[in-house]
Amino acid sequence: MNGLLVFGRSGQVATELARLAPEAWFLGRDEVDLSDASNCAAAILAAQPTAIINAAAHTAVDRAESEPELAHAVNAEAPFVMARAAARLGVPFLHISTDYVFDGSGERPWQESDPTGPLGVYGASKLAGERGVARAGGQWAVLRTSWVFSAHGANFVKTMMRLGAEREELRVVADQNGGPTPAADIASACLTMISAMREDASRGGVYHFAGAPDTSWAGFAREIMDQAGLSCRVDDIASSDYPTPARRPGNSRLDCSAIARDFGIARPDWRAGLAKVVTELRT
């Protein structure tokens, strides 16, 4: 992937991208201040890349409620400026987004064309970023994903393994459903998409990508305990029993048929991805 510029270095997806495409140029927050969009544009114009992936974001969902300006700057303004700079250079731009752009109602998996309706600041800032990318012109794609996990950074798997080793039982929300997604598979999907976009300037748009099968956070937690060999019991609770500053969508299921049709990318079995992550964390 010569000429690939990636925004992000230490995040979950960026770390996996670095494993798959070590020749790419990765820009961390110590090099580019994402809260100042002009820095993003300057970095792109200086690098003169042949393709760009934005794997950086303000992902602290609850903290975003108390720092909306920062969340908007990083998740909305920066991607717009990145996409506009990419358009000036005539190179494809791929931006990673989230299931949080939806309101989480119903039980049917969300399709790309469904009405959006974020419940909090994080989702609203990510939706604004999507719209900015589309508005910037040029060749672009948005990849919405959900429940990202890996052996890196802060995520649900690492938290459950830590708590599961310390406690006899855990109470986990069972009325939020979605597809856990290994960061390694997201990175692979990004590289497949950006490669296809480089070859065909007509390719792009909004796509969904999430692991299968869909489950609840409690179901996810039980699988983590099983694979990690932990005896901690997982008890189902309702979202109302675990209040958080930001509301979470009850239905985060994503319909991933479009990305399979257009790019040949199938939903990964997150249980297989989990096995790899558990092994990596243990070694």
Rank of each mutant, 00 (worst) to 15 (best):
S10H: 10
G11R: 00
G11D: 00
A14H: 01
A14E: 02
L17V: 07
A18G: 12
R19M: 10
L20N: 05
L20P: 06
E23H: 09
F26E: 01
L27W: 00
L27C: 03
G28V: 07
R29M: 11
R29L: 10
R29P: 06
D30Q: 13
D30F: 03
E31F: 02
V32A: 03
D33H: 11
D33M: 10
L34K: 02
A37V: 11
A37F: 12
S38Q: 15
N39F: 06
C40H: 01
A41Y: 10
A41I: 07
A43C: 05
A46V: 11
A47W: 02
Q48P: 01
P49H: 06
T50C: 06
T50M: 08
A51D: 08
A51R: 06
I52D: 03
A55R: 03
A56Q: 03
H58D: 13
H58L: 09
T59C: 02
A60E: 15
D62M: 02
D62T: 05
S66Y: 04
S66T: 12
E67Q: 14
P68G: 05
P68D: 13
L70R: 13
A71L: 05
V74E: 08
V74A: 05
N75K: 03
A76G: 03
E77L: 14
A78I: 10
V81H: 07
M82T: 07
M82R: 04
A83I: 09
A83G: 08
A83V: 12
R84H: 13
A86Y: 09
A87P: 06
A87Y: 07
R88D: 13
R88P: 00
L89K: 09
V91P: 05
P92I: 15
P92W: 15
F93S: 03
